[in-house]
């Protein structure tokens, strides 16, 4: 009779091994989210209390970073005019993968109080993929922290796939960007 205590280990396929490694990587990634704060609007004022001793974001392993290359999560805090959207797309494409985006406030969701402005876009997720939204105008600091915890949960459940969607649906994103911006290339005195 065969023993029930011991089962022969099943050799994992390459896909399964990759998945295991990816899960290990996800553990590190969700416990050390470095932010790039793209402080375009008023929601940015909620970040100082979230970072300092009142709510202490560092206990989640989050911290501010200086450049897009070093950062993991892009915080878009508030409304985006066309001019900033152009820079935001540049910034987003410079970040090293895997990368995540959190949109703050109602401006990034549906335009907020700027829904009828000629210079401000209405939906951020038409142009770059957004993993998590924090609603409110402006959101409470509790809501902001909750948004970060949600993002961590999403990474844990392998649902924060915005950066993959940006690859697979690249044509759709590019079309939306060109519809809104005309051309994504930055043309000003400093880029000539």
């Amino acid at each position: 009779m065969e023993s029930t205590k011991y089962t022969q280990p099943v050799a994992l396929s390459k896909k399964q091994v990759d998945r295991k490694w990816w899960e290990i990587g996800d553990f590190f990634r969700r416990n050390s989210l470095w932010m790039l704060m793209y402080c375009t609007g008023c929601c940015a004022i909620e970040l100082p209390p979230a970072m300092t001793s009142a709510y202490d974001m560092e206990r989640l392993g989050m911290g501010p970073m200086a450049t897009p290359r070093q950062a993991d999560v892009l915080l878009v805090t508030g409304y985006l005019s066309l001019k900033t959207l152009r820079r935001l797309i540049y910034t987003y494409e410079q970040m090293s993968e895997p990368k995540y985006v959190v949109g703050f406030g109602s401006c990034t969701i549906n335009g907020g109080i700027y829904h009828d402005s000629h210079a401000v876009i209405n939906q951020l997720d038409q142009y770059i993929p957004v993993d998590s939204y924090v609603a409110g105008c402006m959101p409470n600091t509790e809501a902001v922290m909750n948004g970060f915890v949600d993002l961590i949960e999403l990474i844990k459940n392998k649902k924060a796939n915005g950066w993959k969607n940006y690859h697979t649906n690249n044509a759709w994103y590019k079309k939306n960007q060109i519809d809104a911006l005309g051309e994504v290339r930055i043309k000003d005195e400093f880029h000539q």
């Binding site: 969701i109 549906n110 335009g111 829904h115 009828d116 402005s117 000629h118 401000v120 876009i121 209405n122 939906q123 038409q126 939306n176 519809d179 809104a180």
Partner: peptide, 12 residues
């Protein structure tokens, strides 16, 4: 501006 915004930026 409302017409421009509606034309240019999709509304959710």
């Amino acid at each position: 501006p409302q017409a421009y915004s509606d034309r240019k930026f999709p509304v959710r």
